[in-house]
Amino acid sequence: MRTSESEAKGLRRSLEKAQRDAEVDHLTGLPNRRAFEAVLEREHKAARAALDPLVLAFCDIDHFKRINDTHGHEAGDRVLRLIADLLSGISDDKCHVSRHGGEEFVMLFRGCTLTEAKERLDRLRESLAERRLVNRHNDEPFGQITFSAGVADVFDHTDPRAALKAADEALYAAKTGGRNQIRVAPKPGTAR
């Protein structure tokens, strides 16, 4: 009987570890897209019930392919970890950051207005753009590292997925508009 209990405990621990591993991006240590979707659903319900503002942001590292092509994928991985750490630095118990995939990150700001979330991201974006990073393996400068982002008020949209799409479209507008900027998604039905 003890053997069965011990095996069951071991299996439960293994299952819990597998579930955690399935929701964590191993490069950055951030929650992954799958985990973020669960957080988005939970926070959307809670924010709606509490009448809290809820803002989504899509962030993307500008010219990331150039970093990988010039400095190699290992250096690119270090830049991804740096951006993950910086974004995590502006998050708190009501702000969640996840790696969405590639060089893209998604953030959820609960209790922040659209303006406040944009300002937090903008301060971080400006701070990063002022830094001069050097590849520590060969002492070559990376050049300016920047990111672009799109932000959307979740409650301006029919559901969280629509808000996510709007934030993604605002990110695309930031990229096509010159990069290194934050764009706000327009409310549905308003001109761009």
Score class of each variant (00 low, 15 high):
residue 184 V to P: 06
residue 68 N to A: 04
residue 72 G to Y: 12
residue 104 E to L: 00
residue 24 V to Y: 05
residue 56 L to I: 13
residue 111 G to E: 01
residue 136 R to I: 07
residue 59 C to G: 08
residue 145 I to K: 08
residue 130 E to T: 09
residue 74 E to Y: 02
residue 143 G to S: 03
residue 66 R to C: 08
residue 37 E to H: 08
residue 3 T to M: 07
residue 78 R to D: 09
residue 100 H to S: 05
residue 123 R to W: 12
residue 63 H to C: 05
residue 26 H to N: 10
residue 153 D to S: 15
residue 41 E to K: 07
residue 138 N to I: 07
residue 19 Q to E: 14
residue 34 R to E: 15
residue 174 A to D: 04
residue 107 M to W: 05
residue 95 C to D: 02
residue 81 R to H: 11
residue 38 A to F: 09
residue 13 R to I: 09
residue 27 L to E: 02
residue 92 D to T: 10
residue 3 T to D: 11
residue 166 A to S: 06
residue 185 A to Q: 13
residue 54 L to R: 11
residue 146 T to K: 11
residue 88 S to F: 06
residue 166 A to M: 06
residue 43 E to L: 13
residue 74 E to H: 11
residue 11 L to W: 01
residue 168 D to I: 06
residue 188 P to W: 08
residue 146 T to E: 15
residue 119 E to L: 12
residue 48 R to L: 09
residue 104 E to C: 03
residue 21 D to F: 01
residue 1 M to S: 15
residue 154 V to M: 03
residue 97 V to H: 06
residue 53 P to Q: 11
residue 66 R to E: 15
residue 144 Q to C: 07
residue 190 T to M: 11
residue 6 S to V: 03
residue 75 A to F: 08
residue 74 E to I: 13
residue 162 A to E: 11
residue 34 R to Q: 14
residue 135 N to C: 13
residue 71 H to P: 06
residue 78 R to Y: 02
residue 130 E to H: 12
residue 67 I to H: 05
residue 50 A to M: 10
